[in-house]
Design a protein around this nucleic acid. Structure first.
Length: 765
DNA sequence: AAAGCGGTACTTTTT
DNA sequence: GTACCGCTTT
């Protein structure tokens, strides 16, 4: 029964066999981390452990379903299905629904996504007449999210001197009040946001010891994937649940911690040894994924981080090609070259599109890349950005489902009360909202019976509201009688959404209809696939669908689709979403200062180290070939910006780089295989831009007088000359050391911010 | 009440 | 460049 252990190397095998007690597995990139987790679970099952008593927490739904699949192939489907395996959010959402009697929330609570949260916050800020410039929903939502991730309740937030001082200093003294009102409104709407799922689980385990004992006894073996990305709320849940027998196994890589910005605490993994004194440590250091060049290049970068657990990642794989580095005049040329190179890889080296990924720091970079790939008819898929579930028509329809399941869902109500238009406008809606607030009742109660709350609405509009309320109520009577797909069809027809878009007859409405169709297909597939623990005869209701959809990223969605239509695409995604994935060929685009590392990360070394870890993650996605590129100019907010290449490139040991950009050669000498690149480039890029490039490379321009100047030699109002921008006046000097910057007003180029570390200047007067 | 127009302020990463 | 807001007109 344990024959599958022979698939593992020594370190992996030991990590699998140490089933009891606290276990920390530090797994370098590509070292078979998922393999250890799956085999460990399979091993537990083969020893007769009940699958219901194993809790495995992952970072994404995709990781969970893939792992389940692999375990199923090792020990059989029935056992694999009975495992408690999923993301923190989905597993504990399930538990919170089950424990509704203890939580004070009904079991059909809605999960608000970030957009819902922001809209609600916006409403509250408006109602309170706070300055909307100071109180931006995005900022407020972050403050509240941070508080919740650190288990700071409304009361604690408002009584904490430090927090209050900080908010006051930021000119936002009322965030505590907003937090309070926000939680009240969520409660009234029977809704939780993402962070509440973890926060309220902690409350449940803290205030209800009988529930804590129950789950401690239930989950005899706990496994946590990507432990380096857990936040305090998650950490404490795991700690509490495992306190009884300490059969806990956490797997992670501190070098790949990239979610501190949303509360992840790298100390959780670094301090594991303090939390569990009797722990065993296993290090997986052999990389099976990438070539020597890629592994070594990644190692040379991550070395620059101070805070890390020591490990030596190595590989037995072939040497492989060096990392190909190239530059481009602007983002369009960069995209064109990447497209051309992909075209060539497919044509000459038989790579398929799904062998290839283009990774970037920010979502907006996908646009130019898409254009380039479209021109070359290369099939591609953009992950992230405006995902399927965020499209207006899809969210509208989901709002119907939400309101049907949970009438109190305020955001869903506001969204669809007048969509499609049924003559209930802003004025009426505001009356209802105000009345709901004044009487401290859900909006639904007011809509159901306005007269009760002294809302004066004309009888004409009154009838329309009643019709709407009636429609939602009648659909509710069906939700436990008909499956998700049937409810979906009824909703689409009764609501008038289909008619609304059919009447428009524009290409845009056509597309929206297609998306609605796609959602119905997803419902159908969901309804007809009895893959749940509950068994074959249980009805797949719309409620169950919503629960999944709320916590689904488009990553999970696209995964299903790709399997379904079996087409091959080049993947376009952010470096963050690429975590956990691997591709034979990886392009890293836009490696420029202020873009990557992001401008916002330059203020603290902790944030800069996180960017570096992200760079490490990005490089280590590549199996065979890694291409890096940067543009010398890039449009941002419609304004032209001149860019310097990313500092991270300089941190790679030069011997691993095939430097076609010429950044490491003082004499700008032409690299050995520049020709082959120029060739593939010239097929698609205007000859002009190449010429410009080559002129630069010959070193004809007279730059002998320009040099890097120390920040101290410059003063405001000085007139300086820049190699490219010509003559200008210094307006402002900021930053220290590496980050010293000068704001210069150029005569012909307008205002520019120059990093003194790179800018070559000449002082004129 | 709804659609259309023009000005404005943004873009880090996501369960 | 674009998403979003508030103003206008019908």
């Amino acid at each position: 029964m344990t024959d599958f252990l022979s698939d593992l190397n020594e370190a992996q095998k030991k990590a699998v066999e140490a089933t009891d007690g606290a276990v920390l597995v530090i797994a370098g990139a590509g070292s078979g981390k998922t393999r250890v987790l799956t085999y460990r679970i399979a091993y537990l099952l083969s020893k007769g452990i009940d699958p219901f008593s194993i809790l495995a927490l992952t970072f994404t739904n995709k990781a969970a379903s893939e792992m389940k699949e692999r375990i199923a192939s090792l020990v059989g489907r029935p056992k694999a299905k009975s495992l408690w395996m999923g993301t923190f959010h989905s597993v504990f959402a399930k538990i919170l629904r089950f424990e509704s009697e203890r939580t004070g929330f009904p079991s059909n609570f809605t999960i608000y996504d970030t957009e819902d949260s922001k809209r609600l916050l916006k409403n509250i800020i408006k109602e309170q007449n706070f300055d909307e410039k100071e109180y931006k929903p995005a900022v407020v939502v972050n403050r509240i999210s941070n508080a919740k991730n650190n288990l700071i309740s409304v009361e604690e937030y408002n009584n904490d001197f430090e927090i209050q001082t900080y908010d006051s200093q930021c000119k936002r003294p009322h965030i505590g009040l907003i937090y309070k009102l926000y939680q009240q409104r969520l409660k009234k709407a029977s809704a939780m946001d993402f962070d509440d799922l973890l926060f309220n689980t902690n409350v449940l385990l803290r205030d209800h010891p009988e529930a804590l004992y129950k789950y401690q006894n239930k989950f005899k073996y706990i496994l946590v994937d990507e432990y380096q990305d857990t936040n305090f709320a998650q950490y404490l849940i795991v700690k509490k649940l495992s306190a009884n027998n300490e059969n806990i196994c956490v797997v992670g890589d501190d070098a790949q911690s990239i979610y501190a910005f949303r509360g992840a605490n790298i100390q959780n993994i670094i301090n594991f040894k303090k939390d569990y004194k009797d722990f065993s440590l296993f290090k997986l250091e052999q990389n099976y994924r990438s070539t020597k060049n890629i592994v070594d290049a990644a190692n040379s970068v991550i070395e620059n981080n101070k805070e890390q657990i020591k490990k030596a990642v190595w590989t037995n794989n072939e040497e492989g090609e060096r990392i190909h580095l190239f530059n481009a005049a602007n983002e369009n040329e960069e995209a064109a070259v990447i497209g051309a190179k992909i075209f060539e890889l497919m044509k000459k080296e038989n790579f398929t599109p799904d062998n290839i990924a283009v990774l970037y720091r920010t979502n907006y970079q996908s646009r130019t890349l898409e254009e380039s790939l479209r021109k070359l008819s290369i099939p591609y898929k953009v992950f992230g950005g405006v995902s399927f579930y965020q499209r207006k028509e899809v969210k509208d329809l989901l709002a119907y489902f939400r309101l049907i399941v949970n009438h109190y869902d305020e955001q869903a109500f506001v969204r669809i009360i007048n969509f499609p238009a049924r003559g209930i406008g802003d004025t009426t809606l505001n009356k209802i909202l105000v009345a709901a607030n004044e009487n401290n009742v859900p909006v639904w109660d007011v809509a159901e019976n306005p007269a009760n709350y002294k809302v004066s609405i004309g009888s004409n509009i009154q009838n329309k509201i009643s019709e709407f309320v009636f429609m939602i109520k009648s659909l509710k009577t069906q939700i436990n009688k008909q499956n998700a797909y049937e409810i979906g069809k009824l909703t689409v027809n009764n609501s008038g959404i289909i008619k609304h878009y059919k009447d428009q007859e524009t290409p845009e409405s056509e597309m929206r209809l297609e998306n609605i169709d796609e959602l119905l297909n997803a419902l159908k597939e969901f309804a007809e696939n009895p893959d749940d623990v509950e068994g074959e005869n249980s009805l797949k209701t719309i409620e169950l669908f919503l629960e999944e959809a709320a916590l689904m990223t488009d990553m999970d969605m696209e995964e299903n689709k790709q399997n379904a239509d079996n087409k091959s695409y080049v993947s376009l995604m952010t470096m963050h979403s690429a975590k956990g994935l691997e591709f034979p060929v990886v392009f890293l685009a836009g490696l420029e200062e202020n873009l990557f590392p992001s401008q916002m990360s330059l203020e603290s070394s902790a944030e800069l180290e996180e960017e570096r870890r992200l760079f490490y993650v990005a490089i280590t996605r590549g199996m065979k070939k890694v291409f890096m590129s940067f543009a010398e100019t890039r449009y941002r907010f419609g304004e032209l910006n001149f860019c310097e290449h990313s500092r991270f490139i300089d941190e790679i040991d030069q011997k691993h780089i095939d430097d076609m950009a010429g950044i490491f050669s003082t004499f700008n000498k032409k690299p050995a295989n520049f020709e082959s690149f120029a060739e593939s480039r010239s097929n698609f890029v205007s000859v002009n831009s190449i010429k410009k490039k080559q002129d630069n490379n010959t070193g004809n321009n007279d730059d002998s007088e320009f040099g890097k100047l120390s920040p101290s030699s410059l003063k405001v109002d000085m007139t300086i000359q820049h190699q490219r921008f010509g003559i200008g006046t210094i307006q402002l000097l900021e930053g220290k050391g590496e980050n010293a910057k000068a704001h210069v007003l150029f005569n012909n180029f307008g205002k520019k911010q120059l990093l003194l570390k790179y800018a070559k200047l000449k002082i004129l007067s």
